Simulated scan of single mutants.
Amino acid sequence: MEVIDAEYERLTFYFIAEKRIDLRELVRELFRLYKTRIWMASLQGAGGYEQ
């Protein structure tokens, strides 16, 4: 996975990945660290970023 960008209002991580990955554990860890809602946004797929 390669993180492309992040925002902090609600902490949003934009990423690209070669295959589908389970992000549940990562989201839990990020919530414990930042104490805010975590959004993971893939830039691939319909209308997204393709490398």
Rank of each mutant, 00 (worst) to 15 (best):
3 V>N: 05
34 Y>I: 00
39 W>H: 03
3 V>I: 11
24 R>Y: 14
18 E>S: 14
26 L>K: 00
31 F>A: 04
43 L>V: 00
4 I>H: 10
31 F>G: 00
31 F>R: 03
16 I>H: 07
51 Q>D: 14
15 F>C: 00
24 R>I: 15
24 R>G: 13
48 G>F: 04
42 S>M: 02
16 I>C: 14
23 L>R: 11
19 K>D: 13
28 R>C: 08
28 R>A: 03
18 E>I: 08
31 F>K: 02
36 T>N: 02
51 Q>Y: 15
30 L>E: 03
49 Y>W: 03
17 A>R: 01
17 A>D: 02
29 E>D: 08
5 D>W: 04
15 F>R: 08
29 E>K: 12
21 I>A: 11
32 R>D: 00
27 V>Y: 01
20 R>F: 07
26 L>V: 12
14 Y>T: 04
35 K>W: 03
41 A>F: 00
19 K>W: 15
6 A>Q: 10
21 I>V: 14
46 A>R: 08
1 M>P: 04
4 I>M: 14
13 F>A: 02
46 A>M: 14
43 L>K: 02
30 L>F: 02
44 Q>F: 10
28 R>V: 04
49 Y>S: 06
19 K>M: 14
47 G>D: 11
15 F>E: 05
6 A>Y: 11
15 F>L: 11
3 V>A: 08
25 E>L: 11
13 F>V: 04
27 V>M: 01
39 W>P: 00
37 R>H: 06
7 E>T: 15
14 Y>N: 08
11 L>Q: 06
9 E>I: 10
4 I>C: 12
10 R>E: 08
18 E>N: 11
24 R>N: 15
41 A>M: 07
8 Y>A: 14
27 V>E: 04
43 L>H: 04
35 K>N: 07
12 T>A: 09
3 V>H: 01
23 L>Y: 06
22 D>S: 10
50 E>R: 03
17 A>V: 11
27 V>W: 05
41 A>I: 08
32 R>P: 06
33 L>T: 02
48 G>R: 06
15 F>W: 14
37 R>S: 11
2 E>A: 03
42 S>V: 05
27 V>D: 07
2 E>Y: 09
26 L>A: 04
11 L>I: 08
43 L>T: 01
12 T>M: 05
32 R>S: 07
42 S>W: 10
21 I>F: 13
42 S>G: 06
40 M>H: 01
